[in-house]
């Protein structure tokens, strides 16, 4: 089963971003929640080629007001 090592960077906000392993590939337009704030994914990049089951993904997010899927 693939594992996605995802680097989340938040733009326009003082949130420092996160790195975590997850079982689902993040998708543009999805909502994610860090702390009490919700962010929209605006860009997804494969940062380097996968190694074994591990995929190395970079995600850029921006703030939204709606509630979304909780990551933290």
């Amino acid at each position: 089963m693939p594992i996605y090592k995802v680097s989340y960077v938040i733009i326009g906000n003082d949130n420092p971003g996160s790195i975590l392993n997850q079982e689902e590939m993040p998708k543009k337009g999805e909502l994610v929640q860090f702390g009490d704030k919700t962010f929209e994914i605006i860009e997804v990049l494969e940062l380097v080629p996968p190694r074994g089951e591990f995929h190395y993904i970079h995600v850029t997010c921006q703030t939204v007001r709606k509630k979304g899927k909780s990551k933290k």
Partner: peptide, 11 residues
């Protein structure tokens, strides 16, 4: 002091 990154499961 400032938080530079948050690390979750598997890190």
């Amino acid at each position: 002091a400032r938080v530079v990154v948050s690390l979750g499961g598997g890190q």
